[in-house]
Design a binder for these strands. Structure first.
Lengths: 207, 207
DNA sequence: GTCTATAGAGCGATAGAC
DNA sequence: GTCTATCGCTCTATAGAC
């Protein structure tokens, strides 16, 4: 702690929090460092004192966020639990994670709009996902005849599509479905049951 | 036609095409009217001669795009064909539509990022979707015991999530799956079969 | 209709005092 | 560490000639 009861964190984290908020709400170009400074209750000079530029401030936020977004997922893909249990758990936990961080999906996805940014290719995400335990499980269970064969990528995209998409389309979804904050949460709670059931119904279907 | 073999359309549509491209690739804030002008091979003054401002140019593009995005969908929701056939047809046609216009989803979704924009609430989309034939079909088929009960909104979001999400997450998907342009198309062709099967497996499952 | 030139505002960044 | 003041650039928009 610093010295007095300002009910605030230290300056650097205050700036980070403010930047996170503004960047997530408006995207890189839409976010103005003036707004971030105001939100953090400091002046622009101080932003550049802590982070050298808008771009670096953004990268700092982005790297952290991206780590959360994928770290969470990768961990779950590798858990040593049966496939069906895993599906339920992934949907449940990832939904909770997104309910607590509803702006993350759009933020992460917009950054990669037209291929752009490469500063996530350093991370070995490709390999990590490709070699995840889940992949082995999908193959093994299919060989045993417990599920039908499915490419891991289809599995992942189907789960993610069903869980993440509502957050990306949230404003439109909320409008069409007349959902307020609570209504949206309820909708997502319903999906915690629906989505695993749907995935499993597909996998288990005798074809 | 105008007068000579400039192999170009008339100025106004050239500007519109250019604006569409730039706005879709970079979003409203990221798009600079300089770039649009250059892309259209005219100067900035001419942009403002045809459309009074960047904002109006954007609205013009947006309204049109949004109409395509939802018009397409709403039409399909109301077609008088059996539910199962409809599911297959929606996925097939909507996938084709998005393959031909891959940037539309991100474009439409980013506009509504944090609730913002209201200039789509004029359209009676809410009512149109809520009163779509599909809704009746889902209720009727459930009453007949042919499918399990499902809220129309879950149905729509599930279909959309599975079809639209890959386009929104395309750069990341392409990276993880090592997919080039052709690979991505192939992936989406596979989903034309997978997604309807998944939806129907869920709906038909004796619970 | 189309151009050049430029106004006028907003932006990111820094110098320099405290 | 934190501030005020300001620079220099980029952006949108318009005036005015052709």
């Amino acid at each position: 702690m610093k010295k007095m009861a300002e009910l605030d964190q230290d300056t650097e984290t205050r700036i980070k929090k403010a930047a996170e908020k503004v960047f997530m709400e408006r995207g890189y170009e839409g976010a103005k460092i003036r707004d971030i400074a105001e939100e953090a209750k400091v002046n622009i000079a101080l932003l550049n004192y802590y982070f050298r530029s808008k771009e670096q401030l953004f990268k700092s936020i982005y790297t952290e966020t991206f780590g959360k977004f994928f770290g969470q997922m990768v961990t779950m893909l590798n858990e040593e639990i049966p496939l069906e249990v895993k599906v339920w758990k992934i949907v449940d936990q990832y939904t909770n994670f997104l309910l607590a961080n509803p702006l993350i999906p759009m933020f992460v996805l917009t950054v990669h709009r037209t291929g752009g940014v490469d500063f996530f290719k350093d991370k070995n995400i490709k390999e990590v996902i490709q070699s995840a335990l889940l992949t082995k499980q999908l193959i093994e269970e299919a060989e045993k005849g417990n599920i039908r064969p499915i490419k891991p990528l289809h599995f992942i995209i189907s789960v993610m599509g069903n869980v993440v998409f509502p957050f990306v389309a949230r404003p439109i979804l909320a409008y069409i479905g007349d959902l307020d904050e609570a209504g949206f949460r309820e909708f997502m709670e319903e999906r915690k049951k629906l989505v695993p059931e749907m995935i499993m119904a597909y996998l288990k279907q005798r074809s």
